[in-house]
């Protein structure tokens, strides 16, 4: 048993590294996209708001697996050159779009949790819209966003396991390959894969719980 672990360790570590790489890219891209969408959702741009509402429902209403296939297999079939993705960018883009719907709702809820009176006061002091956002709303809203955001990051890490289906050798696929080589050690190998995911996710979950006691939680969000 320990021998199998030693032999397969490099393969699993390579997989774990790819999982970390995909999730980090997605955290950056998905958070940015979600932040922009959330700002628009909290603003008064009616048509854009409604359009993004449809976007959010479409992404929330379909499994991530289907979205991944749509981006990896269907978009290239349209024949447009820049929509032909390699597996890695396709995975990051699909995960980022999926993540952005969760992030945007958190950002919107965080902004709306700041009392209206403060915005009115800032505007009465002659601050512009952007000044109000930057100096009054965001400093308070960002703190409120941290706890639910950690939940999204755990969701991303777990989501990376699905991209194994388009041929990316991340942690789970590395585990599958190891299990093909040592079928008798199946339980050990999959247990090890689960443990590695746990080691990666659990600190993030704990961080979220710590942030919640420190910064409080947004009422009625999600």
């Amino acid at each position: 048993m320990s021998e199998t672990i030693l032999i397969t360790a490099p393969l699993l570590m390579k997989g774990l590294w790819l999982t970390i790489k995909i999730s980090m890219w997605t955290v950056a891209l998905g958070s940015f996209l979600g932040f922009v969408i959330g700002l628009i959702r909290a603003s008064r741009m009616k048509i854009l708001k409604a359009a993004l509402g449809v976007y959010i429902h479409c992404l929330r209403g379909t499994p991530f697996l289907v979205q991944l296939y749509l981006i990896y297999f269907v978009l290239p079939a349209t024949g447009v050159e820049w929509l032909k993705f390699e597996a890695f960018p396709a995975a990051v883009i699909a995960l980022s779009l999926y993540t952005s719907t969760y992030v945007s709702e958190i950002v919107r809820a965080g902004i709306e949790a700041v009392p209206k009176g403060q915005v009115e006061a800032a505007r009465a002091l002659g601050m512009s819209k952007w000044q109000t956002l930057g100096h009054v709303i965001l400093p308070q809203a960002l703190k409120l966003m941290i706890p639910p955001m950690t939940g999204v990051y755990v969701l991303i890490i777990k989501g990376t396991s699905v991209v194994s289906v388009i041929g990316i050798t991340e942690l789970l696929r590395a585990g599958e390959q190891a299990a093909l080589r040592y079928p008798s050690e199946l339980m050990t190998l999959y247990g090890l894969v689960a443990l590695l995911y746990f080691v990666y996710c659990y600190p993030v979950l704990r961080l979220g719980r710590w942030a919640e006691t420190k910064f409080g939680r947004i009422e009625n969000s999600l």
């Binding site: 755990v154 396991s161 999959y190």
Partner: peptide, 19 residues
Amino acid sequence: VQAIRSTPLLVQIYIIYFA
């Protein structure tokens, strides 16, 4: 709850079905 929340569903499916 923590064990389930910190591992992907796909891994759980594989463990239950294959292992």
